[in-house]
Write a protein that binds this DNA or RNA. Structure first.
Lengths: 158, 158
DNA sequence: CTGCTTCTGCAATTTTGTTTCATGAGGCTC
DNA sequence: GAGCCTCATGAAACAAAATTGCAGAAGCAG
């Protein structure tokens, strides 16, 4: 039996992904020329990879400043108790906060890395009171305010 | 006189962005129905926002594991000299490294926050030798290996 | 060799994106 | 208020892209 394995990606698939991760508005015809395949073949591969979850989403990257979310902040969070329960609860709390744009559970000198986007510092301060000072399992947190986003994206080696 | 200000976004623009940041393959016709505008109007707004840099990119989000990039790593980098020149050079170097998925210039106890995706630790070690140990403007860097991606997200408030 | 599966390209079809154009609303001057 | 200007809009025409149908070639199992 088989629980349906993800079919492996060949060189064509990888090249296609490498293009899409930079610009998914690239016409299939153009992609086809780049990888030496016909447009329909490219289309079928993209469809398959989307169904298989290799392509997880197709999104527009939007400038946070332009939409009034002017401040991007990295936060390193260290917790006191790292029991499974406590970690799960922290994950839930962070996942529920709409200001938290990205949340990773990490090893190292911290336990969580957060990427937060807020309109202004006042909102961030309110958030810290709510999430960090108001949570007695948070030992320490460190704030880094982003001044410039140099790069976003990309998973596929080029 | 004015060096051409970015025109402010109205409610239509925001709704359009809210849709595109979730799925930029949504047909303009469908977007139009959702926001009560004709397809051409939607199209013009998207074009304008793209030209203005509000929409910074259109990309496919790819599962790093599926493409053999199994490890995600946060790196906090502190530099020695923070002159404009040095910072610009660092930005260029980081932007050019394909393993670096996200790069932010930040204030706080570090100067750069990087999100790196690599197939295995060996590659990360090679990268540290090249980017950090091999760069004498790097004072210190701290590594956090992601064990779990709890959340990845979006810029437009919904 | 035969049958089966899978992938491919070509061509037709359908859907989507883009341009054109005429209209109406809002703002401004006089 | 009248006239004029600018600008965004929708309808329709148009161009481009995505999708589907189909037949052929390559790989494999029996």
């Amino acid at each position: 039996m088989s629980g349906s394995f993800p079919p492996p990606l060949d060189a064509f698939d990888r090249k296609i992904l490498a293009i899409l991760q930079r610009d998914n508005t690239t016409p299939q015809r153009t992609i086809g020329e780049a990888v030496n395949l016909s447009a329909p073949s490219v289309q079928r591969r993209i469809k398959r990879m989307t169904e298989d979850g290799v392509i997880q989403a197709n999104i527009a990257v939007i400038d946070p400043v332009a939409v009034g979310q002017a401040i991007t902040i990295f936060v390193e969070v260290e917790v006191i108790s790292e029991t499974a329960d406590q970690i799960e609860q922290a994950k839930r709390v962070f996942a529920a906060a709409p200001e938290i744009q990205q949340c990773y559970y990490v090893t190292g000198e911290a336990d969580f890395m957060l990427v937060i986007v807020v309109p202004a510092m006042a909102e961030y301060e309110a958030l810290t009171r709510r999430l960090f000072f108001g949570n007695n399992n948070v030992k320490r947190f460190r704030t880094f305010v982003a001044m410039d986003r140099i790069k976003v994206g990309l998973s596929v080696p080029t």
